[in-house]
Design a protein around this nucleic acid. Structure first.
Length: 204
DNA sequence: GCTAATCTAATCAACTATAAGTTGATTAGCACATTAGC
């Protein structure tokens, strides 16, 4: 991460991403935007990121945490461009404008996928350093690598639950990532066991 | 239909201030998260 590029203070940690420390001015802008637009689209997040000189992915996380911790009403379902104009009336001052455009969907090439899958088989929980290295290698933002690993783990867990027998056979044939077979995470010394289904072995 | 993007809820962990609260980062998702682009 080009942490020196950004104006917020970064604190070095071992395996996780450095904790972002927003300045008062940055928080003021974030809170102000949140009060008007608790579900910003990609364009808004990008604009905010430029404005307060941070990464768009940090804005995303900040909004997620903010929504979760401030008793905020969940996003109304089935918003449409036409009907959404009247949304948000239950919360004075809060807009639920038409759902803004998402980030453009990333399309991975065969070689990018090959690299990602290879890395996943080595360690399904890469730390920030590994993710950044991978991101650099395949030429995508680190945040995309993080999302790819999240989705990959999710799909694999789902697949294991739906087809436990088939998954076992795959494991026997070595098709399941080592991380599910008790391989060691060399970055933090954490052991992953197949029974743990990833999460219970997380001991940051 | 597949899967990237997004979401909630729970939890970990750094920080501030010195025991506990705040908040950024990470994770799973269970009648198997949902939404949406290709």
């Amino acid at each position: 991460m080009a942490e020196d590029t950004y104006s917020h203070k970064m604190v070095k940690t071992n395996h996780r991403r450095c904790r972002t420390k927003f300045t008062e001015e940055q928080l003021k802008i974030l809170i102000n935007t949140f009060n008007q637009k608790p579900y910003p689209g990609y364009a808004t997040k990008q604009k905010l990121a430029l404005e307060i000189n941070t990464e768009e992915s940090r804005i995303q996380i900040w909004f997620q945490n903010r929504r979760a911790r401030h008793g905020f009403q969940k996003r109304p379902e089935a918003e449409t461009l036409e009907s959404s104009q009247s949304q948000g009336q239950d919360q004075p001052g809060v807009e639920f404008p038409s759902r803004e455009a998402r980030r453009c969907r990333t399309t991975y090439s065969a070689s990018q996928l090959h690299t990602l899958i290879k890395a996943f088989m080595k360690n399904p929980y890469p730390g920030i350093d590994s993710r950044e290295e991978l991101a650099k290698e395949i030429g995508v933002p680190e945040s995309r690598v993080q999302i790819w690993f999240q989705n990959r783990r999710s799909r694999l867990l789902l697949q294991r639950k739906r087809e436990p027998v088939a998954s076992l056979e795959q494991e026997e044939q070595g098709k399941i990532p080592e991380g599910l077979q008790g391989a060691e995470d060399t970055q933090n010394g954490t052991n992953f066991t197949s029974d743990s289904h990833f999460s219970e072995a997380r001991t940051w």
